[in-house]
Simulated assay, not measured.
Amino acid sequence: MTQLVCPEFDEFEAALYGVQGRYVLRSRPQRDWRLKLIDLSGVAIMMGREGASTAYSGIGMPDCFNIFIPLSAQECTIVDGQAFDAQTVGWMAPDRMFHIIAERAASWVTVAISAPLVMHWVHTHADEFDATLLSNNLVCTGRRGVIALLTTIWRIVRVERDDPAQLRYPGAELAARTELVDLVFRAVLTIDEGAASIRQKPRHRQILSRALDLLNLMGETPIFVNDLCAAAEASERSVRNVFHRYLGMGPHRYLALYRMHAIRAALCNAAPGDTVSGICGRFGVWDFGRFAALYSAHFGVLPSQTLRARRASARA
């Protein structure tokens, strides 16, 4: 078992397995970020404890399917615009973008399954398998199979903690992996009668993808809401509605938080001779005093402290 305790969210973000994406903190961090990972050679259990309210935009890795189960703050979790409760789980397909809002610091568990193992299960269960799971993200209501899945996950965690050599035996690892994969699919496929599978609307997905792609492409260039609208080929109202639904905030606030995170990353990777005001200026900050106050309220330190910590780390 790999265990990480991260004082900062970006180390936690980089360590996530099976997905690649970006956190935007919606609130000041309240605690450290913790991650546990158990690798069963093609299936990985990941347990996360986030340190703040967040908005996460990610994409499944090309060869990996994921099931996402909140362990706390279920009522404060929104995935692809769908509010969660104690009866809800998420399914993420490879190369599909998804968005998770946690309105307070939350804990969760995911199981990532390699594509070859998924296809093997599909081949042997073709008569009961919903083929849309191979190409769509779903939010599923119904937990008849999830209780059994969680029970098995806790058993594996206990064995890995108390007798880690046990799961290193090829036969034992194969048995645990096979049972886990079967329970993942049972959890996703055994949806309560009358419950719906919710998919992102294609137009919403297009608007959000184009807007976020522009942010990733423009780097330090200041970006405004009208730029997002032009990139998405949508009205400001449409962009605002999509951001509220999938990211839990309007585009103005998201842009402000995105810029703050980008400046923090630039401060953490500053070159010799870089200054706080110079870095902030590159990102379009003109009222540095106000920005410093907002930065401190959000990250708990001033921009100058972030830069000093970076230089102290470089000297060390």
Rank of each mutant, 00 (worst) to 15 (best):
Y56T: 08
R210S: 08
D227W: 02
D95C: 14
L180D: 00
A292W: 05
S197W: 03
I198K: 03
S107D: 12
H252W: 11
A266M: 07
V89K: 06
G219I: 12
I38L: 08
L40P: 06
L134M: 02
C268K: 09
D227E: 04
W121L: 00
V159C: 05
G142L: 03
A44N: 10
T190H: 11
S238Q: 14
V159Q: 05
A131S: 09
F299L: 03
D227I: 07
V285T: 12
G284C: 13
C64K: 08
P116V: 06
V276E: 09
V276M: 09
A126C: 06
Q200K: 09
R168D: 08
V239F: 02
L16A: 11
G58V: 01
A83E: 12
G300I: 11
D32N: 15
Y254I: 01
G194T: 14
A14D: 07
R158K: 11
F129V: 05
L117M: 10
A196N: 13
I38Y: 03
R315Y: 03
R161H: 09
V19M: 09
T141V: 03
H244I: 08
T124H: 13
R199F: 11
T141E: 01
C76A: 07
V301E: 10
M47Y: 03
S277R: 15
L37C: 13
E50R: 02
M46V: 11
W154R: 14
G289W: 08
G250K: 02
R205A: 15
A15T: 13
